[in-house]
Design a protein around this nucleic acid. Structure first.
Lengths: 292, 292
DNA sequence: CCACGCATGAAACTTACTTTCACGCGCCGA
DNA sequence: TCGGCGCGTGAAAGTAAGTTTCATGCGTGG
């Protein structure tokens, strides 16, 4: 399990690192294979810092020392070659890209985000969250902007299998509702950056009421972690141009889905029944053949 | 060229090596990953020889020194590991599944849906749609239930880069608005099954007004195709249990993202500017450090 | 039986990595 | 505004890893 996604892990930790360490991190992420070839002095020079900082960086990402970093980087770099045409991959969309390229690039990034998220997702934390969700008499989910879609999606899913779940698009309603939570209830905050003030506020209120708080973010060391009992992380390295952060959204949805399945699995019969009933409810709105 | 098959090369050279070097070689070939983890002294001891011999071995196989060997070994070892555990994959979640299994299964399905969608997505249709979107003075997007999230997401994206786009959660508003479309405008209907009555109705109205209609569905031969000028398909094979159809949602989002990038790419400067402006607008809501 | 060459490990040496420590900068409280 | 406190940082000292050198010993051919 400590094998998974070092590069991804580094990108996630990046904002939490000190400036000098960030310079090192960026070099490493930009070209892992190259970094693996360099000696510590060499890398330090390239990052315009001292060897000491490079070692600190290694420790920051949970490694013993520099040789370990080199080896892990070499391994990762080797793994990540192949499937797709590397020219397009792992970066911004080049200006002259034709549509086939665009599709390949986006799909690659998206699929990667999903896979890497799964790799680094901690099953034990998931289990704890599912446990809490199962025990909760009320579940509240918060998310602003793009993360709001995910929050809403989760709410809908839980509702469909008969759990009491709310999503409040608006901060004031959210705060009011959070204030009414109690011990045993669960509040989930979704924020890609982990710095969305509104979401933090709501989680804080929920926590003060004794509710179990859960954060879903790309950056495990961001402020949202401080107000959460459980932190679940996604692993999306967004490219600059890709506005809406679709990759991160997909990663979030994947995590939400895992939680959902976990909850549903606790009571398969009941959940299955509920799903069938709700599916039946919309069936009348389906058309089976073309109309005149 | 010198990259390929170090292990293989070593096995080939093995008979030509001196006895002590052969002991080293055998250890290395037997478990490259393990060897990569060892220090030179460590490996020498394991091979019952001296460090000097290990170095000689490195030179014998054409490498500069021991660190290079370690790195190459780590890279090779990584390459030969199978990506995913195939046992869990490709089906419903088994009843006794533990969380790691659940995660692996879901992520695999999700990633697969994204990749396969990309594979079968027709770049020419995409291009045509993008063309239409660019030319449109107004864009309307429809989707019910889960597909509504995707529709809403698309609307938000287009809006962010300054295109006039609407999403109507409610059928009546949608019908009214569709009736006001004209030639050159674009109406997009999103429906996983392709049988969602409401969405069909709206597309039909839009089409009758002369608007270009686009369908996004998993089933190219479903009723929605009959009311659409362009059909874009996702490729999600849902497993039965997986309610909310997350995989299909991810596939839809991926397609939407491709279209979005296509539209944005037509006018990079303007789009980038718009994205920056909108990002700036929410910046004040970000917190950078933990609060008391 | 000696001499030569080759494989080998011990030890010297060099380089790479790691730790320690002190400086300086920014932030908080007075 | 000032003092001090803590953190990030690099210089330098210290340690460990890797590399070279060299002497030994063994086998082989003269």
């Amino acid at each position: 399990m400590p094998e998974a996604g070092l590069i991804v892990q580094i990108s996630g930790l990046l904002p939490a690192l000190s400036p000098a360490e960030q310079r090192v991190a960026r070099l490493v992420v930009a070209d892992p294979a190259d970094a693996a070839r360099r000696t510590i002095t060499d890398l330090a020079t390239a990052a315009e810092t001292s060897e000491a900082t490079v070692i600190r960086f290694c420790r920051s990402v949970g490694l013993e020392g520099y040789p370990q970093l080199r080896i892990r980087l070499a391994a990762e770099a080797a793994r990540r070659v192949e499937p797709v045409d590397a020219r397009v991959v792992g970066g911004d969309i080049p200006p002259g890209a034709d549509f086939a390229q665009i599709i390949a690039t986006i799909a690659f990034n998206d699929a990667r985000a999903v896979e890497e998220t799964a790799q680094q997702l901690d099953p034990e934390v998931c289990e704890a969250v599912v446990e809490a969700l199962n025990a909760a008499s009320r579940i509240e989910i918060y998310g602003a902007g793009a993360s709001g879609f995910v929050a809403s999606d989760f709410q809908q899913k839980l509702h469909r299998i008969g759990r009491t779940a709310y999503y409040w698009p608006d901060v004031h309603s959210a705060l009011t509702s959070a204030a009414l939570l109690g011990r045993g209830d669960v509040a989930i905050g979704i924020s890609h950056t982990g710095t969305t003030g509104d979401v933090l506020d709501v989680l804080e209120v929920a926590r003060s009421r004794g509710a179990t708080t859960v954060a879903l973010t790309n950056f495990p060391r961001s402020p949202i972690a401080d107000v959460a009992d459980h932190v679940l992380t996604t692993a999306a390295r967004e490219t600059t141009y890709r506005s809406g952060a679709t990759a991160s959204r997909l990663a979030q949805l994947t995590v939400v889905d895992c939680l959902f399945v976990g909850v549903a699995a606790r009571n398969r019969a009941k959940a299955r029944k509920a799903l069938e009933v709700t599916a039946e409810a919309v069936r009348s709105r389906r058309v089976t053949r073309r109309r005149g």
